[in-house]
Design a protein around this nucleic acid. Sequence first.
RNA 1: GGGCUCGUAGCUUAGCCUGGCGGAGCGCACGGCUGAUAACCGUGAGGUCACGCGUUCGAAUCGCGUCGGGCCCA
Length: 1049
Amino acid sequence: MIVEVPGQYNPKNVEDEVREFWQREDTYHKVRRLRAGGRRFFFVDGPPYTTGRIHLGTAWNKVIKDSILRYMSMRGHELKDRAGWDMHGLPIEVKVEEHLGFRSKKDIETYGVDRFIEQCKSFALRQKDEMTEQFKSLGVWLDWDNPYMTLKNEYIEAAWWTLKRAHERGLLERGLRVVNWCPRCQTAIADSEVEYWDERDPSIYVKFPVEGEENTYIVIWTTTPWTIPANVAVAVHKDFMYSKVRAWRRDGTYEILIMATDLIENVLKQGRYVDYEILESMRGEDLLSLTYRNPLQDLVPPQRDFVHGVHLADFVTAENTGIVHIAPGHGLEDYELGLEKRLPIFCPVGEDGRYTSEAGEKYEGKYVRDANPEVVEDLMDRGALLASGELVHRYGHCWRCKTPIIFIATRQWFIRISDLRDQMLQEIERVSWYPEWAGSARFKDWISNARDWCISRQRYWGIPLPIWICRSCGSMDVIGTAAELEMRAGRAVEDLHRPAVDDVRLRCSCGGEMERVPDVFDVWFDSAVASWATLNFPREDKEFNVWWPADFITEGHDQTRGWFYSQLGASMVAFGRAPYKSVLMHGFTLDEQGRKMSKSIGNVVHPEDVVERYGADTLRFYVLSSNAPWEDLHFSWEGAMNVNRMLNILWNAYRFPLPYMILDKFDISKADTSRYSLRPEDRWIISRVNSLAKEIEENMAEYMLHRVTRSLQDFILEDLSRWYIQLVRPRTWIETDDPDKLAAYATLYTVMSSLVKLLAPFTPFLAESIYQNLVRGLDPSALESVHMCDWPGYREDLIDKRLEESMRYVREISEAVSNARQKGGRKLRWPVSRIMISSDEQLDLRDLVHVLRTQTNSKDVIVLPPGEKPEMNLEVSVVQKKIGPVFKGESRDVVEAITSMNPREVKRIIESGAPLEWKGKSYMITGEMVEFREIPPANLIPAEFSKGIVYVDITLTDELKAEGYAREIIRRIQDMRKDLDLKVDEMIRVSVALDSSEVLGLVSGWKDHISSEVRATLLRMGNDIDIEGELTKDWEVDGVNIRVSVARA
RNA sequence: GGGCUCGUAGCUUAGCCUGGCGGAGCGCACGGCUGAUAACCGUGAGGUCACGCGUUCGAAUCGCGUCGGGCCCA
């Protein structure tokens, strides 16, 4: 049984009802079970990080995933669709620290690592639950009951196992490296965890005194004064020219300075020197023999023992002084140069960002960034400061706690990704990228620059590194699974997290005791192993053998350096191949102006607010249709509103036939469409819906979600609502069991049942709601949910391209007629006697002429033969330039002759080649002497369409007037029915008083028609009759006053 | 500074891959419909297709460069 639905699309009600239905019927699981045994489609959910609420970007991400998965399911695929959660790492630690009011690692140690871990864990789990609800409210169907979670033991094992593979392949190494270091979190952080923004920093020029040369200095520039105590060398470029310069101060003293020749002016200006002379110029190489002293050597004892030299380096640029200060303990390039030149890797800074005792008593314990002014002062006191200022530049910060990072040399664990670079480049060629450039350009570029992956973090809440080292012999073991650990330890280990795992001691083959290294994994390593962890590999390999690698993943373009990369890296280590076959890269969500959404600008749009206002289907359809997936989405409320409006139109189109179907007890099983001859317009809309399905399939194959949704939108608005529904409306009012009406019902049913299936992946709630009522309501044998249905696909034999084309012309002509009517001042309610269609082509309107007739409200539709036009009035004008030279003095007469004659006659004469006779004279007129213009007669209003011109004859006759007035009266009575809120089939009594006898006379012939149209049992019309009824209203139509009263019969 | 990407009407955008009259929606102005009606429809105005150079018979589309936005890197 179908039921009527409310007149306004109310997404909240629709979605609540559907959600409840899915819940009650366990629809998700039924759908998944239904597809068991189908072609496998392995999707890996890029795990969102469990902190805070979901934002618009995350919502978009999941909507894309869900739409594609629903589509794949309808296409018959068995899905692997576990949702994933990224639950370890600093961000959560930072949140928990904030919550507990902690400021440093020491606070955590004091509080107790076990309690801290518990807090992190419960925080992550709580967040996961909250976010799950939010995703569910968007209609996202993933395996929410059984998600993969990075904090689970079986997940941790996947990471362990992968590291063990790295070790076995000789790709794991420990080394002193300069890393990005967060002094607050006291851990190394990945390049991808560094966030850059502008920071005001010192900008100083420092003079290093050259050994053995009196009053001579090498000049360097730096923005990190605090690294000067760790300076052990300087670098120059081999191609640059350098000069030794005598620089004079205002007071007449001078110094001898060494710097790049091109930069002398700049440097001396900074140092406020008044004059200079170049003593000597040399190439970079010529400086290599120099040595210098660190100006702070009296404060930093180890500096006294270092030999400070000059070295060549390519990274030196012709900026500032052209000489670069090298502190191998505090810079990546410095470190590499240090290794190469065997410089001391001097790093007198501790993990807390404070100077160690190595920096000397004066600096020890001071936080390096705070120490900047002091270092500058000390340099000045020692005459080593050439200039001091400030500048604003981009500086790196810890992604999570926003502390400016520092570079320090520490011992870390690395995976030698750089060894795998070439294989990775080969492997990504085999992956299908959407769009293509995401792989061929963007990702390729990133891989080409791939550096070794620092996987260790000096933190707590993460997957512990499964590396045990013997205290006696220093040998190292990497443990691959929990079982292996328990076997080696000889006892059970409940939780693989810290601190429990820290207590596990292993026996070394040397007989000594092995201890775990205290580090945890970089959190990027967690999600990197997702594609096999989600299959519970290595704990079991059954699923892995069947499903891996992933068929499809999709994430935002920031994940190029993130998850696309980390997964590839880990998979290359573990399996030597890419873990995914196709990747869709999507964009970012920005505000309407294309700015980043941020709390400080106050332009953040929350998905739940959009859902609240317009519903989840609207949000879904909006983000999918707004632009191409890989482009950034500029969110606009107006855009969302328009989608909502479109869905409302769909709702109205769906709702409109329901009352009639119910009234007529329409039975689809008896409405075998082949038994009723469908009208051409019925076959047209069916053709269109099949064409639509085809279009969608083609675009889905390329993940062109914007084209898919736009095709749907066009179909709903243009074909269904604006056209077909308009055409079909009168047929539903027929009250008998007319086959034509049943054909209309059957067509509507067919079209709507296809349409809701085509919509199901994108607007799952609305599609389900319509399906439940209309489709299941009419066909009890229909499947329980629209999401269980097979993708309807398309039938070539139902697609009639020529019919579609014909209908396109019919629509164009109808629109042109509207245009002409507007120009001619004839409302659509008033019939016209005829329209004439003129085209140079043979227009194939097929059997759609009746459609044209009703839609244009025209008594006759005349399609003229190709090239023909209605008879035109001809206008002739003379071309003086041509007449003058020929007729000279008689020109005036000739012009008079031409203009005073009937243009048609002039034309005939010219064409016949005969002379024109005028006032007893004859003139030979040629075609070039005149110009003819065709003017349609006043009653024919022309309007263009793509293939020609349509002429509307607006001549009024009494019959047309009578019908026009009759329709005016009908419309007003209908309006009043509405006011009285009558049911569509309720009968009424009507009185109509007109103040025009002429109109009354015309209309009286239409009395029966009016009565039946408005369902009147009694209709009284007169010039001056008594009027009474429940509702009385006065109207005015073209100067005629009409008083109408209506009462229930 | 480098890689990728985007720039089309007041706003949001399609078209670009594969060259052939630049399309929508919103907003604006005017009109229509009235058995979808707090809904819907039509018409109109509105364009330096960011800018410049090139390729071509022909460029929004292809190439190079410049400017501006986004992501990523240094």
